[in-house]
Write a protein that binds this DNA or RNA. Structure first.
Lengths: 201, 201
DNA sequence: GTCTATAGTACGATAGAC
DNA sequence: GTCTATCGTACTATAGAC
């Protein structure tokens, strides 16, 4: 791989902040976890901590946004797809001991009212997920308004259920969300995946 | 009123942490906002910052848990009630400029993987919301399993939509959640509110 | 029970040798 | 581009006068 120092810093920061939030992670922590000394952090990111957080969130967020389309790709019935998304999420969380899944949510919750710069960055990421998901579902035959509502409801319900599942250390909130959301979409047939749709996200 | 120093500290801490999270709030901040000097904080809370956070979360969480039953009380159709919950939440958020509503979520997201003591505290609060909400809906005629799923889905969808709404500074995620969740419950008639149910939460 | 002063540590950020 | 040493500040927590 031969990852650059810059990349190491961003992946270390993303992983740390996913679990400990923004204020809870120090530059020293990022330096230690990435293997780079403090000076290198400021050499590569002159904007300091906020710039590192911003770029780390954008990187991790772009990758994480592919999750829903990737899972849904395997289904042709929207109801089963919704069910599959929450079952998959429940399985993944159980495997990690109910540690945080989403690399954006915790930091977003922490900075939304306080660090305008990072609020905008996280807003951009969520916006891309929403637009990308909407385009994906439109590509699979749903009309625009319905596609957007499904995407918003899926992302919202996932983020909320992630939080409850982490705190309660239980998959129940994720499975309950699936049980409630899936039935109404059962019978809605999705057209064949384009394969290109995912790239749009 | 004549609020005690203890109470002032807890309400100040709860309000600060709702917006800035746990690590983002210092003891100095709490002292300044409450009017009490640092020494008083440690006099009343020998457990330091984590004890203040724990008690502040429990206090604020107990009050906030009444929100869903209070709104649902005004409805007899479950679908309209669900719609009403998200409409009310959207209105409230818009009025505060999309600042955080839930006093527990941000801190919970931040500490769930790191501060076991506070993870348990927030878990207890969410657990009470879930149990209380389930009991409330059972009191209004739903069977147990359905009542619990509705409660879990409502709380999860609300928390997720709150996060998206804050970050995007838009009520759309809340309204979309209502549009998606409400229809399937339309026609489900709720029995008359007991009036006691709320006290159980 | 209230409040001040301060200990001891960790923070974000910088300067400058290599 | 890498790394060390360090600045100045803010942190949690404590000691002790009142």
């Amino acid at each position: 791989m031969a990852r650059s120092t810059r990349e190491s810093i961003l992946t270390a920061a993303a992983e740390l902040m996913r679990h400990k939030g923004y204020a809870g992670v120090g530059m020293k922590d990022i330096a230690d976890a990435s293997g780079a000394p403090i000076g290198s952090l400021y050499h590569h990111f002159r904007g300091g901590k906020t710039q590192i957080a911003r770029e780390a969130l954008v990187n991790a967020g772009a990758a994480y946004g592919l999750l829903i389309p990737t899972v849904v790709d395997a289904y042709t019935d929207l109801g089963e797809a919704v069910d599959g998304v929450f079952r998959q999420a429940a399985e993944d969380m159980a495997h990690t001991g109910f540690a945080n899944m989403c690399p954006v949510a915790s930091v977003a919750a922490e900075v939304a009212d306080t660090v305008e710069d990072l609020r905008q960055a996280t807003g951009g990421i969520f916006g891309q997920w929403i637009d990308g998901g909407t385009a994906y579902f439109v590509g699979r035959g749903l009309d625009g308004a319905r596609a957007r509502d499904v995407t918003l409801a899926l992302i919202g319900a996932l983020e909320g259920a992630f939080l409850l599942a982490r705190v309660l250390r239980s998959a129940e909130p994720l499975l309950a969300a699936g049980r409630v959301l899936a039935p109404q979409y059962r019978g809605t047939v999705l057209t064949a995946p384009a394969g290109v749709g995912k790239a749009a996200i």
